[in-house]
Design a binder for these strands. Structure first.
Lengths: 201, 201
DNA sequence: GTCTATATTGAGATAGAC
DNA sequence: GTCTATCTCAATATAGAC
């Protein structure tokens, strides 16, 4: 019973290769990364990659799907929970920066190749997931306005996109292993968003 | 004297082709756009492009340089001007959204291909321009904090990047020919940044 | 300034042996 | 699971005629 005991994350060759591919995609870009480079980095020949994956595209697909599914599931839990508007917003933002910290390479891949991927039929789910995400976040913002916690005169959709763009693109410069942790950065973003930068007497 | 009278923007074949290339780069991505597609869209054959430009890369280079030079020049004027911190910040943000409105395709190209371009030696100036831009914006924010207009406890560099990312990536969804003009959107972003979204009694 | 024709290269992917 | 060997294709770019 011990040999088949585990799904528990023994990385396995396949996942190892996938991780290597993800790092290269993030660093050099998806198109600019060749299957030969991936194979080299994994210590095998390019043809051998195709024992594990159908195509280069399939590798990126798998990376992106996994991260987005996890993030969206977390968003759903937060939006469905009984948190007040501010704690809910804070939890959403923390979740996003948490993903950047936990899956930096994949998030960078997604941010950098968004325009490319959204044109490939295989990645059609990206638009779908994005729409649900927008609904969830906008829901939290509008509810907050409805109960008087957030200003009533705000465009929730614009606000969501402004925040979303600021958060995700931070993957291009933010290092989670530096002095500022992801929750900390999340709180700073939320703080600015909530109270603004104008000094008050 | 009338034949050589003008630099005044007669488009000319070359600029026309460059504009077509820019639209395709923005829409399909730089790498995914082939010189044949550009040539097709311009109504010529791919080889003929090389009468006007050295390479596909050179086309993108020219597009990006022109826009960034113009934007940075405007930033310099604003930062050097005698505006107060809030009007200066507003002017900077308006300038950025103005560029998105005026040169949507080129800004999209730059945002989408940032990771690619910054790895190509030819585009080394991107990092340089970005650094000066950061200095200018951070200078405005820090001056504002020093004179008590902005909160003193803020991380100006983080704030700049947050705002920069939010502004530029909006090129992926914002349409300047829609109901909200660029100055209007700029003012909304600045409004949120200055006063926050928390409702106050 | 554009076309014809083509050189050249480098990519993703496949088949079958080991 | 990896290697050997190779196919196939599409891309950028060039040379010289018109």
């Amino acid at each position: 019973m011990s040999t088949t005991a585990a799904l528990p994350r023994v990385p396995g060759r396949r996942d190892e290769i996938l991780g290597i591919a993800g790092e290269l995609f993030a660093e050099r870009g998806f198109t600019a990364t060749t299957v030969r480079e991936i194979a080299d980095a994994a210590g095998i020949l390019s043809g051998s990659l195709y024992h594990h994956f159908d195509s280069k595209e399939a590798m990126a697909d798998e990376l992106v799907r996994e991260v987005l599914d996890r993030v969206l599931a977390a968003y759903r839990r937060i939006a469905a929970g009984a948190l007040g508007p501010e704690p809910a917003l804070r939890a959403l933002v923390r979740e996003a920066f948490g993903a950047i910290a936990a899956d930096r390479a994949t998030v960078a891949l997604l941010v950098n190749e968004w325009n490319l991927f959204t044109q490939v039929p295989r990645f059609g789910y990206l638009r779908v997931l994005e729409q649900e995400t927008e609904r969830l976040w906008v829901g939290v913002l509008e509810h907050g306005a409805a109960v008087g916690v957030f200003r009533a005169d705000l465009d929730a959709r614009m606000l969501y996109r402004m925040l979303r763009d600021a958060i995700w693109v931070s993957v291009r410069w933010y290092r989670a292993d530096g002095p500022v942790g992801p929750d900390q950065l999340a709180d700073r973003y939320v703080d600015v968003l909530l109270t603004g930068v104008r000094s008050r007497p």
